[in-house]
Structure formats: structure tokens, C-alpha cells
């Protein structure tokens, strides 16, 4: 048992080590081929990824996402007609209507989860990935930006919102006629683009480019 104690007390060189964020087990870093990934030996948390052409692909998807999100804000989202009365709303109108009818909490929450947080995440990612792609000087602020972009992920709820919209359509199909506008389809496309971003974005590649020393 003496060997174990000795071994633990010597401070290892941290450059080629990685600790599992799920269970804290130390691993030696692997050199991965494109498309490979490495999992923790104990809890099978993914520790290292090496996605091919990650920067190019995710930057393209992020830029597409920004365009789609801006389109879906202003264009008509849904239109509704019943007994000759028609109403068409955009996403921003919807938030405005909630705000106007004294449901400020619900309006703000919706605005934050489906517009502000996804947009912030996309803009931060675009800035960081653009900087890497076109060899800008790496700054500390970009690393903070990338951290926020990663941490915001569960709070950007455009995908859940779209399921909610489909459920509402089913709920009121008996009461009124509904038609999906252009913004509906572009928001649906945005959900697909978000999935592509998550699939193509390789956090390890980005961190290594942002901070080559460590």
C-alpha cells in the first residue's frame, strides 16, 4: 500500500490529464482520430471528442440559426379565424399580448426562453467561432463568451416551445381555424439547426483553439 500513498502525494503533470466532470476520476488524455470520442472508464461520461470540420460546420449552422431566429421574430407566426374575425400574430406580438393583458411574468419568461436566451447563445457562438475560423487574436473575453454559450444550452427552449405550439394547435382545432405562417416554419427549421449545432460543435476543439497553451 505504500506505493499508492507515494503515488497520490506526487503532484502529477496536469497537461496530459483530464478529470471526469461526472465522477472526478482522473484519466490520461488520448489522442483521438477525427470522429472518435472517449468515455470515462467508470461513469461513461463523454470526456473527449474530436469532431471532423467542427469549426466550419458549426459556424455555418450558427449563422443560419441567427437568420432563422430573426426571420421568425417579425413574420406572421400563426393566423386564426373564426366567425369572420381574423387575427394574425408574430412571436413578438404574442409576447406583447401577454404583457398587455397583465401577464407580465409569463410574457417575460416566454420572451427570455424562446428569443433572448437562444439569440444570446447563437450570437456568442458566432463571435467565438468566427474569431477562430478567421484567425483573430484570441482574447479572454471569447473564452468567457464560449463558457456562457455552453452553459445557456438547457435554458434555450425553442424546441420545447414548438412542441407547445403543436399541442395548442390540436387543442383549439375544434374552436377556430388556424394557419401556420412563415415564422412557424422558420422556427421549426431553427429547431433542426439547433440540433445540427449540438451535433457538430466540438467543445474540445474550440477550447484548444481558444487557449493553445494549456
Amino acid at each position: 500500500m505504500t506505493t499508492e500513498v507515494e503515488f497520490i502525494n506526487t503532484q502529477p503533470n496536469t497537461d496530459n490529464l483530464i478529470a471526469c466532470p461526472g465522477c472526478d476520476l482522473l484519466h490520461t488524455k488520448q489522442s483521438l482520430q477525427a470522429g472518435e470520442y472517449a468515455r470515462c472508464e467508470r461513469c461513461s461520461h463523454v470526456l473527449q471528442t474530436c469532431k471532423p470540420l467542427s469549426i466550419d460546420r458549426s459556424l455555418a449552422a450558427v449563422l443560419a440559426g441567427i437568420v432563422l431566429l430573426l426571420i421568425s421574430l417579425c413574420l406572421p407566426f400563426l393566423s386564426l379565424s373564426r366567425s369572420g374575425i381574423e387575427s394574425t400574430i408574430s412571436v413578438l406580438n404574442a409576447v406583447e399580448a401577454l404583457w398587455g393583458s397583465d401577464m407580465r411574468g409569463l410574457g417575460t419568461l416566454t420572451l427570455a426562453f424562446i428569443v433572448l436566451l437562444p439569440l444570446t447563445r447563437l450570437v456568442l457562438l458566432a463571435w467565438v467561432l468566427w474569431g477562430i475560423r478567421f484567425d483573430h487574436q484570441m482574447r479572454y473575453s471569447m473564452r468567457v463568451a464560449f463558457r456562457w454559450a455552453v452553459q445557456l444550452e438547457p435554458w434555450a427552449m425553442a424546441d420545447i416551445f414548438m412542441v407547445g405550439v403543436v399541442v395548442s394547435l390540436v387543442k383549439i382545432s375544434a374552436l377556430a381555424n388556424l394557419e401556420a405562417g412563415l415564422a412557424f416554419w422558420s422556427l421549426l427549421a431553427l429547431v433542426g439547426v439547433m440540433v445540427i449545432i449540438n451535433l457538430t460543435l466540438c467543445k474540445d476543439t474550440v477550447w484548444n483553439k481558444l487557449d493553445p497553451i494549456s
Binding site: L78, L80, R82, S83, I85, S87, I89, N93, A94, V95, A97, L98, S101, M103, L106, G107, L109, T110, I114, M157, I160, F161, V163, G164, V165, V167, S168, K171, I172, L175, A176
Partner: peptide
């Protein structure tokens, strides 16, 4: 469910 209510409340103001 939160988004369902938000969409319905915003949309159905007839």
C-alpha cells in the same frame, strides 16, 4: 404546458 398557455392566451383574443 407553460408555452401552450402562453400561445393560446396570446393568439385567442377575439
Amino acid at each position: 404546458d407553460v408555452f401552450v398557455v402562453a400561445v393560446l392566451a396570446a393568439l385567442i383574443q377575439l
